[in-house]
Design a protein around this nucleic acid. Structure first.
Lengths: 150, 150
DNA sequence: AATAAATGTCAACAAGACTGACATAAATAC
DNA sequence: GTATTTATGTCAGTCTTGTTGACATTTATT
């Protein structure tokens, strides 16, 4: 039984998110803010509904977090041109900067872990992750361009 | 920048823990209960302090969850022989059974993801996870026998 | 004109973290 | 042999981030 994969997955994820947690706290933010920042940076102009779908949380839950990010000038909303009901989300310069800061430690941790692997290691890890994702959500990974290096 | 690793890590972990979440809910339990069950199953006779150290939560936080698990007969405590102050944690037969149920879907998801990888894939993924863990905690991984297949 | 969709907002609630303070029993130090 | 430290438990209050349900607004669609 892959008890070791389960356990190591836990520890790896704990320390991966832990990198950002300390920095976020100083801003008065939490993991939820980080997740929103990540996806808005990844796909600028994302409508609210997409974020809800990705994070699998309710709009009421997102609203609080999003409001803080907007009020503090990290994210801005623009009305959709094609569909004027949509509120498209964009990171401001300030928001992109914060995201860079949050990502810095995570990036070096990831780079170090991959550097210790055999040549095909990075690709193998990415393939594993994709394999762990619910098949119904895999097209979403493609749309977010997370599977380009495969 | 390894934005793709970050994103896929998020999705993979979300769906990995999501497997158990549905089952846990019917029991009136949450992820915290699952984590405790996992580690108690992995290392029977673990003292409370070790669990706190691993989960990086406070004793007050653990107390609630542990109490529910004990009161419902999933875990039992025994006074340590060497150090009678310690409360060593053991899963009951009922606890082991619940853990097996919770692990079943996670196991098949992991197995499927690994089956799609090249022969060395499993080892590569495990090495990646270890590389992501804070170096100070790596001896702990060894003690928990999570690094045996490396 | 009627309905549906995308979003926002108010209110109440729950899980699971947190801090701080204090209690007990057992081990260790002096 | 008393004093201190350690391992654990418990009470009380707070915070973040999730939940549900209800209702409003704007815009698209039928």
């Amino acid at each position: 039984m892959p008890l070791d994969v389960m356990g190591l997955f836990f520890f790896a994820y704990r320390d991966f998110v832990g990198d950002a947690d300390a920095l976020l706290e100083r801003q008065g933010f939490g993991r939820a803010h980080h997740r929103v920042l990540y996806f808005v940076n990844l796909k600028p102009g994302m409508p609210v509904a997409d974020i809800l779908d990705i994070l699998k949380i309710t709009k009421q839950s997102l609203a609080r977090v999003l409001r803080q990010l907007i009020d503090n000038g990290y994210i801005e909303q623009k009305t959709g041109r094609a569909d004027r009901r949509q509120r498209l989300l964009y990171a401001t310069a300030k928001g992109r900067e914060l995201f860079e800061t949050l990502s810095a430690t995570q990036t070096s941790r990831i780079d170090a872990a991959i550097a210790a692997l055999p040549p095909a290691g990075r690709r193998t890890v990415l393939k594993f992750f994709v394999g762990m994702v619910e098949p119904a959500d895999r097209p979403l990974l493609d749309r977010l361009k997370l599977t380009e290096n495969l």
